[in-house]
């Protein structure tokens, strides 16, 4: 199979980037998308050029490292698929594939297709945890959780922190990511104690880091590779309003 590529190249955060065209004449439909980029890089290196930098690690859809905005979609075509799970068989012979980095103010480009997603860690550090010191946990089965709540918490917890939701959103909002963590913890009895403080702290941090507002376009849900549901955002908003009222009453 032949494919044409139009790839965003940017030396570093300080320089401007441009699209560069490449073509590969001998790709196999069996290749994964990242293996296709490996093949391109091999070619570039052998020709004395500079390989394209892109983030990747597990290559099995679980670490959240890979990103790439492919033909206008974060993680490319295909539902609930990360870039590393995407295969060339999803593209047509002769097709031009446009590859860009995530574009969001809070995710600055580091090089080529690699962006800095550190802002997510900062949001988690603001409150995305249960304050339990090592050693002070009680017997696991002394905390009972309804199976359906545990299952729902699991669904929210399966977010891989890739940032596709932010890249998909015209406002670059991080609401889906943040609400997934908030929901996971709020759905479990052990997370309920701090639920109000958590939502306030995480939302404040998210705003501080420059992520945009949610205007309910649902683009995040459509592009999320892990099927994180928009209902998480509604749940978070309920908690947030609850927390705000709560803190006003306290004052």
């Amino acid at each position: 199979m032949k494919i044409k590529l139009k790839i965003w190249r940017q030396k570093n955060a300080k320089t401007k980037g441009i699209f560069v065209n490449y073509s590969l004449d001998d790709v196999s439909p069996e290749m994964s998308f990242l293996e296709m980029l490996d093949a391109l890089n091999t070619k570039l290196i052998e020709e004395g050029g500079d390989p394209v930098a892109f983030d990747h690690d597990c290559r099995e859809g679980i670490c959240g490292c890979c990103s790439l905005y492919i033909n206008g979609h974060p993680h490319g075509p295909g539902e609930k698929t990360t870039t590393c799970e995407l295969h060339i068989r999803s593209f047509k012979d002769g097709e031009t594939i446009v590859i860009e980095p995530w574009r969001a103010k809070s995710f600055p480009v580091i090089k080529d297709l690699i962006v800095d997603r550190n802002a997510f860690d900062k949001i988690i550090a603001a409150g995305g945890f249960i304050s339990v010191g090592t050693g002070s946990a009680s017997e696991a089965n002394s905390i009972l959780a309804k199976k359906e709540h545990a299952d729902e918490a699991f669904d929210s917890a399966s977010c891989i922190g890739c940032g596709a939701c932010v890249a998909a959103c015209k406002n670059a909002s991080a609401m889906l990511f943040v609400s997934a963590k908030i929901s996971q913890l709020a759905l479990l009895p052990q997370g309920k104690v701090e639920a109000m403080e958590r939502v306030e702290a995480m939302v404040a941090k998210m705003d501080e880091l420059g992520f945009g507002n949610c205007t309910n376009t649902y683009a995040c849900e459509a592009e999320c590779p892990k099927g994180i549901k928009i209902t998480n955002i509604a749940r978070m908003n309920r908690h947030f309003i609850g927390a705000k009222i709560g803190s006003q009453i306290k004052q």
Partner: peptide, 22 residues
């Protein structure tokens, strides 16, 4: 055993039975 207690307390959503236990 303490590890399972710790992880559960940290909010790890382990699979549960209908009665709410792990």
């Amino acid at each position: 055993n303490a590890t399972i207690d710790q992880l559960t307390a940290q909010g790890v959503p382990f699979a549960r039975e209908y009665g709410g236990t792990l």
